[in-house]
Nucleic acid binder design. Structure first.
Lengths: 147, 147
DNA sequence: GTATATGCAAATGTTTTGCAGCTGT
DNA sequence: ACAGCTGCAAAACATTTGCATATAC
């Protein structure tokens, strides 16, 4: 899997004469290994020696070619990053723990996803919005934070 | 409508011996007048003379008694605030313009909302999450930002 | 008179940027 | 040699906090 990610990242970066540098490779590895989106500080723990500015700049570069995506959870938590659906080929959404900031992934059933797509297409049309995607997150408390 | 909001805010604030001060009243008025969630800076434009710290502190106080709610749009935009569903009695979600930051409200059809509730109940159960709510936002471009 | 609310200014935390040096092609 | 990448340090930004004063009950 990670070879596909590296290969595709390399290809897309080259198009704008950018490089898949070691730092970018390590960022992709860390994101591919994690079962959920990571914060910059988690990424830096996983990649010793990576400067903060490099982390942010490289994530921005990878996001510009849609290899990674920024996940906005609740606004009290720092941003998280994940491999884009472009690359993972799997559509998913998130469960957000409002107590501890945990973010889990889930894949919606075809039934749920279909209903949402249909419903939102009508909503977008009614508001003259060009819909590029949607966000269907569960807000709540994770197992550890449930009393 | 605004009398109901003031009345309920007053009642809930009193419970913890806080007050519905003039600044808080003006914040509620501004939020009730707006057709979409407002940022702190928009609120301060609407309420001349309101100190930055007072805006944030009062929004936090009103959020603590669930009269207002923070809306996290995309993470590149500052937070927005709206009257809570507790108060408006209307469940809604948002359309987020990723180009200009605009946030519009929409009310889901009972059909869509029902499908989402059912689907997410199963998702939460499978992940041992206690679901408190959900977020079903359309990401796209508004009329003005669509080429 | 006591607790709460306010304004101002300073601190915080995350993210972004400037710049000089390093690296790959 | 040149474009792009890096680290370090400083800036920018929204948001929060400390403190002294003002206000409401």
């Amino acid at each position: 899997v990670i070879e596909r990610v590296h290969g595709e990242a390399d290809r897309r970066l080259r198009r704008t004469r950018q490089r898949l540098s070691p730092a970018r490779r390590r960022l992709l590895d860390a994101l591919a290994d994690a079962p959920h989106p990571l914060t910059v500080s988690e990424l830096r723990e996983a990649i010793p020696g990576l400067a903060q500015s490099s982390a942010y700049r490289n994530l921005a570069a990878l996001a510009a070619v849609r290899i990674v995506a920024r996940v906005s959870s609740t606004s009290e938590e720092p941003d998280r990053w994940e491999l884009s659906e472009d690359i993972t080929q799997r559509h998913h959404h998130h469960l957000l723990c409002t107590a501890c900031g945990l973010v889990l992934d889930y894949e919606p059933s075809p039934r749920l996803e279909g209903a949402v797509r249909n419903g939102l297409a009508a909503v977008a049309r009614a508001h003259r919005f060009t819909a590029d995607g949607h966000r269907l997150d569960v807000l709540g408390r994770c197992e550890r934070c449930t009393p």
